[in-house]
């Protein structure tokens, strides 16, 4: 066990280094940061000087090592566009992204779980079929399109919800939250729904198939035979048994929600890290891009590591490779 963890930790370190290295390889190709930092009238000589100063003329390995060396000491550099330390910019925006992601996941679960249970218990009913098809329509449109349509209907035509931003936020320590104000709630609903739409469909379908499987197991049949009420069987036994795999997958999806909420954040001008990253791409702001990618990598590595550890503990079959090696 200890050696497994150690090995995985070392591997994770290598993954992070590889991410940073690939990131630096690609920065050469996404545009010129300098042209976004100077006005039209700036001479070429001055541009060249700035490029030199930013270290953009150094070979990629040098730039990479410099970044890694600094990052190891907690210094992620200064944003080209905003002139501020990148770690501070990201830290300021992380609460917005986390709040949105968790909220999206909660909405997805609140709608997805009951629908999943219903469609799983009554797969033949027409209402179930309707739910299944409607849930598919929701994910058959690109996110940006869904988002703008929602804005058009609920923000512009009905005037019910806020069309952009986070609303009024409250500072609690280093954390900021929009959930303590009316405007904050009005702001989070649409982006969270948009972001959670895919997960909602996903969870609903997952629960449905797990439910259908569990309902056919002997364990439920025994429970029925013992005369336990249907309600108790459905929720006390069946649902509980489906939740373990669902929780695992939901946890894994949370990572991708946080990482890829970029589109939603852009459409709703949600001031999170995804929006920052997108702006950084459009201005070739290398320090922000590299740090963001590293952050996402840490997130994924951590989640994968946890999941693998859980599997390792729970499911001995997946340990087979270890056994084989030992033998």
């Amino acid at each position: 066990m200890a050696s497994f963890i150690l090995r995985r930790l070392i591997q994770s370190g290598i993954v992070l280094l590889a991410v940073a290295m690939i990131a630096f390889l690609m920065f050469r190709f996404i545009g010129d940061p300098v042209s976004q930092m100077v006005g039209q009238e700036t001479t070429l000589a001055e541009r060249a000087e700035l490029r030199e100063k930013l270290g953009l003329n150094d070979p990629v390995p040098v730039q990479f090592l410099r970044f890694v060396g600094r990052a190891a000491t907690g210094n992620f550099g200064i944003s080209y566009q905003m002139g501020q330390p990148v770690d501070r910019l990201l830290a300021e925006r992380l609460p917005a992204t986390l709040e949105l992601s968790v909220f999206a996941m909660i909405i997805a679960c609140l709608i997805g779980v009951p629908l999943g249970v219903y469609t799983g218990l009554h797969p033949k009913r027409w209402l179930s079929r309707l739910f299944l098809v409607v849930s598919l329509i929701g994910i058959s449109l690109p996110t940006f399109f869904t988002g703008i349509m929602l804005i058009l209907v609920f923000g512009v035509e009905l005037g019910l919800l806020s069309t952009f931003g986070r609303g009024e936020t409250t500072q609690i320590g280093w954390w900021t939250t929009g959930l303590l104000s009316v405007s904050g709630w009005k702001s989070i609903i649409m982006p969270a729904f948009t972001l959670g739409l895919f997960q909602m469909t996903f969870i609903m379908r997952l629960i449905r198939s797990e439910m259908m499987e569990v309902m056919r197991t002997d364990f439920i049949k025994f429970a029925r035979a013992r005369g336990i009420s249907e309600g108790k069987i459905n929720f006390g036994h069946a649902l509980r048994n489906t939740l373990v795999p669902v929780m695992t997958i939901v946890g894994m999806q949370l990572g991708s929600i946080i990482a890829f909420g970029i589109i939603t954040e852009s459409v709703f001008q949600w001031p999170g890290v995804g929006l920052l990253f997108l702006q950084a791409i459009s201005t070739a702001d290398i320090p922000i891009m590299s740090t963001y990618l590293l952050l996402v990598a840490v997130l994924f590595v951590a989640i994968n590591l946890t999941v693998d550890l859980l599997y390792y503990v729970i499911d001995p079959r997946l340990r087979a490779d270890n056994v084989a090696r030992g033998a």
Partner: peptide, 9 residues
């Protein structure tokens, strides 16, 4: 001072 230097201005 433009961004990207050693320290913020």
């Amino acid at each position: 001072q433009k961004g990207g230097g050693e320290s913020e201005s």
